[in-house]
Design a protein around this nucleic acid. Structure first.
Length: 475
RNA sequence: CGGGGCGUAGCGCAGUCCGGCAGCGCGCUUGGUUUGGGACCAAGAGGUCCCCGGUUCGAAUCCGGGCGCCCCGACCA
């Protein structure tokens, strides 16, 4: 991540696309707006997926799978929901030679298909809660697409739960929001602000939406995960009702929450610098990349012995990779920096003689010799340190680009030069929210769960504001 | 869906104004020398100049129509 915010968003976009292609994370596909995720990019995603999946299971959820196609009638069961997604739904109208009687939506999200099943499954209060998660691909026909951040088709996880009571459902919504916060901060070293979305920004059909917002290296905001509280609206639309303990028939309270491959984009934009990607050790495909250096055949043999010993010591503890390709060492150094490997180990003839190797951190580019003796322990410690450093750097960057302001003029006058998060008192009206957007291009990212209850005159109308909201330009 | 740009070798581009042998850089192949921060020499391979039609002795180049992609807005994870 650059120390200074990059001047132009346009340059930042170019940098971003360049990094993705050079690091071999993804490639353009023949299908408009869809990307091909290359093996290196997918390995990164798999590590992220595994870490998030573990957290989802640890909070009591089970994975399941539901259909890709949603009959039109089902999608239309909840009016607000369908109105929100209609403009970006892809439709299947033919099957083989046959024109379909009812067209099928390619799921833009799975509330309709999943909750309609819950309607069948739930009879008694004993059937609740239902805590299910699905890993799947969804399709949204966006007008404009962007590698990882907004592609026509994307991979994600969507959790859908049904509960007996309102407090229980709300508790679930906030629990999963915190799972996203913890995942982003612990695994991705990406500090986020958990908060509630405004009416204008909330999910189509939700009673309320919660979000974790991250700051990218150009000072723009990225919604990194969302958690929705649906009240009983969807349960009514999809007939999720049950006989309660007291003999009364009641509708369930439902929630959903999701995070996508967008997080890969967020990771790139949070940490990357002019030399390319920086991956946090906990999710990097290769935590340590070993670059053998040799001149003569004799050297090569000696270096190979040392490399084998190190690989063996790391096996099962640290994800490592030896780059034996015949590129020059200089080339390999740059290539693995571009690909974001957190630690590079240089092993050459001089090191072999001295019984050591040279470790170079991607994050700071600092070099240090490490004794062969106990190399795995030392590298583990180094990786932990890098993970902490990366989080600290990202947090410091966010703090440096966070401004507390009192009026629209305070934002409008500086947001072009000082892009970032603008905390400002807000009266809660949609008109004031829109007023800020129209003047500054900044949208209301969230009302933070912490620090959002400060009072003051509203940033737009000057009226009484009992809360503080975060405004920013965003992806 | 509005505004702008582009389409020529795997990638990036020049050539198009002013019609006349299909070019450059990188990458790739083979051989050799190299290798502690983006190596070098030599010899090669590689083309539906986006598509269709027109003008012309002759079209990457001019004219007409179509398609596709990228960027900027509005829409959105």
């Amino acid at each position: 991540m650059p120390d200074q915010i990059t001047d132009l968003t346009d340059d930042y976009s170019r940098w971003y696309n360049d990094v993705i292609e050079k690091a071999e994370l993804a490639d353009h596909s023949p299908v408009r707006g869809c990307m091909v995720v290359r093996p290196y990019g997918y390995a990164l995603w798999e590590n992220m997926q595994a870490a998030l999946d573990a957290r989802i299971k640890a909070t009591g959820h089970l994975n399941a799978y539901f259909p890709l196609f949603i009959p039109e009638s089902l999608l239309q069961a909840e009016a607000e929901h369908v109105a929100g997604f209609n403009p970006e739904v892809a439709w299947v109208t033919r099957g083989g030679q046959e024109e379909l009687h009812e067209r099928l939506a390619v799921r833009p999200t799975s509330e309709a298909i999943i909750l309609s099943m819950y309607g069948k499954w739930v009879q008694s209060w004993r059937d609740l809660p239902i805590l299910i998660n699905q890993w799947a691909n969804v399709v949204r026909w966006e007008k404009r697409t962007y590698y990882f951040l907004r592609t026509t088709e994307f991979l994600w996880q969507e959790g859908h739960t049904a509960h007996r009571t309102e407090p229980e459902a709300m508790e679930e919504v906030l629990r999963m929001l915190d799972v996203y916060r913890d995942f982003a901060e612990t695994e991705l070293a990406m500090p986020v602000i958990p908060g509630r979305k405004s009416e204008a920004e909330k999910f189509a059909g939700a009673a309320s939406t919660f979000t974790v917002e991250a700051m990218m290296g150009d000072g723009k905001a990225l919604q990194a995960g969302t958690s929705h509280f649906f009240g009983q609206q969807f349960a009514k639309a999809f007939n999720i009702d049950f006989l309660d303990v007291d003999g009364e028939r009641r509708h369930a309270w439902t929630t959903s929450w999701g995070a996508s491959t967008r997080l890969v984009g967020g990771l790139i934009m949070t940490h990357g610098d002019d030399n390319g990607l920086k991956l946090p050790p906990r999710v990097a495909p290769y935590q340590v990349v070993i670059v053998p250096i040799f001149r003569s055949d004799d050297d090569r043999v000696r270096v190979a012995e040392a490399v084998d010993r190190i690989s063996a010591a790391l096996r099962g503890r640290i994800r490592s990779h030896v780059d034996w390709s015949d590129k020059t060492p200089g080339w390999k150094f740059n290539e693995w920096e571009m690909k974001g490997a957190p630690l590079r180990l240089e092993v050459g003839p001089r090191d072999v003689v001295q019984g050591q190797v040279v470790a170079v951190r991607r994050h700071s580019r600092s070099k240090e010799p490490i004794p062969m003796e106990g190399v795995a322990d030392r590298l583990s410690a180094l990786l932990d340190e890098i993970q902490r450093e990366m989080f600290a750097t990202a947090l410091a960057f966010r703090e440096a680009h966070t401004h507390h302001v009192g009026s629209i003029d305070d934002i409008a006058g500086r947001i072009d030069e000082e892009r970032g998060f603008y905390w400002a008192p807000w009266c809660g009206s949609a008109a004031c929210e829109e007023g800020v957007r129209a003047r500054t291009g900044a949208t209301l990212r969230c009302i933070p769960l912490e620090g959002g209850d400060q009072t003051g005159p509203c940033v737009a109308c000057g009226g009484i504001a009992a809360q503080t909201a975060v405004f920013a330009r965003s992806y």
